[in-house]
Design a protein around this nucleic acid. Structure first.
Lengths: 195, 195
DNA sequence: TACAGGGTAGACAGATCTGTCTACAATGCA
DNA sequence: TGCATTGTAGACAGATCTGTCTACCCTGTA
């Protein structure tokens, strides 16, 4: 990687790619250094330790993912119906490897306590973005939380299922069910004969 | 660990504890060997490589977790209402660190392809167990899938939230919403969930 | 011109990781 | 008795990981 960006940005970009794709522990500092075309000393001048790089990676990922997410939701209509098509964009991307935060928590757990805290912030912001899609009501916050939980479920299913279709379909049914798909009542006692 | 079990069982038990608690890559073979009180050669006689141990760990975890899960569901009534109290048992356990399979997929991804396959089987079996709680109907399979996805969402939320309460409450609302909560109306004004 | 700032290349230390190997001990069974 | 099986202790090889350090180079500005 020649210098189209200043060294620090190149390092962060490379770390983002490798950490997300291969995992954090599986990615050695040497690899990040080689791949970002930077000298070892330069790396350590910007990031005193690997842990520091991990933290910055997560912060960067958070900003980047959130920006994409709110944009995608807007592009798909800006209401709760946008959720599934927006996520379909992400899941369908060949590089999809699940949620970087969920993965990091699973991988690092308590060894790097900030990971937990950043993840909570991230998921709170995600839930807030989902809340903005919902009509104002007393239950909006709660509905956003419930939807966010279902989104997390879809994220992990799409990570190991062969195709993301099933996860997206489930999420859409949950969404409709939670939001009453308008305002009406739950599934009638007598099930409709055909779909 | 003195020999209350034959060497192989001790190794597997130790690996289960360490892999689940600290992660797979974070746990060196030497650690497993020392902690299970076995000689290195003995270890390698039973498990030709660490990857082999990882596979066996996942198979063992699958059997163990499924046995607990179906038992807990029965103990809590054997219908879909059992889901939340059963999971509450798990989440409330101090050693709770999320789903071993989701964590492994996040950590190892494609580096150990069997992980994906075992995880799919595991989640399929989990969905089947959930399906058994539901009344027979044309949509039972679909409902089980949707519920399973929500359960995965709750599993990951409970992993990084300070307390599992919120995740369990969301899951319960999703469950009621998907299953029509028997026959009655949408979200009651007074929350049915006790603290 | 002088020099500081930011960069490069790469050797090195020390830890840790997987996997192999030697040498020996206890036990059960033919 | 003889011998296979299963175990123990621990040295060792070779790779890889994080982090430090030396020595040099290029460029902009005072």
């Amino acid at each position: 990687m020649a210098p189209p960006f200043p060294a620090r940005a190149r390092i962060l970009l490379t770390a983002h790619e490798l950490f997300y794709r291969d995992g954090i522990r599986a990615t050695g500092i040497d690899r990040v250094i080689a791949e970002s075309g930077v000298a070892k000393l330069t790396f350590y001048r910007h990031f005193p330790s690997k842990n520091e790089l991990v933290r910055e990676f997560l912060e960067y990922r958070h900003r980047r993912w959130m920006a994409w997410f709110v944009d995608a939701l807007q592009r798909h209509g800006g209401n709760s119906k946008a959720l599934v098509p927006a996520l379909a964009e992400w899941f369908g991307n060949g590089d999809y490897r699940g949620c970087a935060f969920i993965n990091s928590v699973g991988e690092l757990g308590e060894t790097l306590p900030e990971v937990m805290e950043i993840t909570r912030r991230h998921k709170q912001d995600m839930a807030d973005a989902i809340g903005k899609l919902l009509p104002a009501s007393r239950q909006r916050k709660r509905q956003a939380m419930d939807l966010a939980l279902a989104v997390d479920g879809a994220i992990v299913r799409a990570q190991f299922d062969e195709s993301p279709e099933a996860a997206l379909a489930s999420l859409e049914r949950i969404r409709k069910s939670l939001l009453g798909s308008g305002r009406s009542a739950p599934p009638p006692a007598v099930r409709p004969m055909r779909s």
